[in-house]
Design a protein around this nucleic acid. Sequence first.
DNA 1: TGAAATGTTGGGGCG
DNA 2: ACGCCCCAACATTTC
Length: 484
Amino acid sequence: MQHIYIAWFRQDLRIHDNPMLAEAAASGRPVLPVFIHAPDEAAPWSPGGASCWWLHHALQSLQEKLQALGLPLLLRQGCSLEVLRDLVNELRGKGISVRAVLSSHLHEPRLAKRDDDVRLQLAGQGLNWWQGNAGLLLEPDRMLNQSGMPYRVFTPFWNKLRREALQPPQPIDFAALHAPDHVPASLSLSELRLLPGIGWSGGFGARWNPSLDGAHQALRQFLSGPVQHYVHQRDLPAQAGTSALSPYLHFGQLGPRQVWAAAQAAMHATSTTQQEGSLAFLRELAWREFACHLLHHFPHTDLQPLNPRYAAFPWQPDAGLQQAWQKGQTGYPLVDAGMRQLWQTGWMHNRIRMVVASFLVKHLLQPWQDGARWFWDTLCDADLANNSLGWQWVAGCGADASPYFRIFNPVLQGEKFDPKGDYVRQWVPELARMPERYIHQPWKAPGSVLQQAAVRLGQDYPWPVVEHRAARARALKALDSITI
DNA sequence: TGAAATGTTGGGGCG
DNA sequence: ACGCCCCAACATTTC
């Protein structure tokens, strides 16, 4: 009888720096890699359309890499526990005994709970359960303050993290990996039906290379150039100044240890700007870590404000306003540019995420949960921890939150970070001919300027859905109602 | 990882 | 030469 391991892939869709593969290689046992598509088990946060598009390509890439190692990647769908049980039974019929199921910790509360249930059920059948850490620099239970409590403020969290001796990725003896004598049947990738209907994600392919090679290429490319000017350029949405590694990190095509180690190595470079840039980038990686830890410690914060006072905030849900925001038809060029970039590429520049989120929550008084839902459905880097933390941060109700009265002025943000209007012109083509001076506030432009730019407000491009000063005053008044 | 309102300062024009 | 006013420019506080 052959004794094997099942390597259950989830959000660790990579070969290198994958602890379960290291474990399998070290054991010398045959290993059967499996991916189970079970979107319902994450409900209400089943992956959105953009995420599924990415997942499809990530699986394809992983399948190719495993194949090169002589391993299959079995694709199945349905209830995770049932699929695993079926596999165990089928293999037993072929004289193969599954000794253990290997995987990596998941940090979304529902999935962690699902894993716990699976672990208990499998234990009942005498199967061992082994989990490693593929997704975080440090497990949440190792990052507590001096009173043994989780950090709620980023800066002390960051100060602790950067002083930790983080383990660099360990090389894996890939030659030791081999498949079992019998490999059960797999679904084809297309049978998982991850790709959306024709048309919608057309722009994604032009923007992204969602493969494992693409992941490493993106990391190398970022660290060999843009990171040098990261401190300032990351705020300019018209530039490729950010790393754009978020989707790779979400699906585990890159692990945080790999990224951390690579950026650390770049910090030994001689130039000061490179060092500062690398440090600023590590800090962003620490925000990702902070978000995961917070959702782990406060598992209700995907739907409920961390600060309970905000449960009584007088939101004014309005489907029409939300739709204008989603479609990029608010009349504020920077906001609309961001929302259209999101729709067309499954991604939005980080600074613009803050601007559009602030606009929805403060100018339009829409619940942050509705904004989070839209991001969830349209971002290909949608990550529950980052998304929840980010929205709560903007809304003022989360950990280390931006004070509620910190209200972005979309015109000033535009003039400051997109001074020439290049970003707006790219994503809001109907404003392409507007001169710099009015690109962020076309309603201020004289009739002759509008005419020359071929813009008829209310027809080619909307009037602002709210007036900034009034909206700002209304938001501050709404805040009063929960702070008195 | 704001913005706006308000306060302060200092240079220059001018009587 | 001096005081007065205006108003950038910058700093502080308030939302």
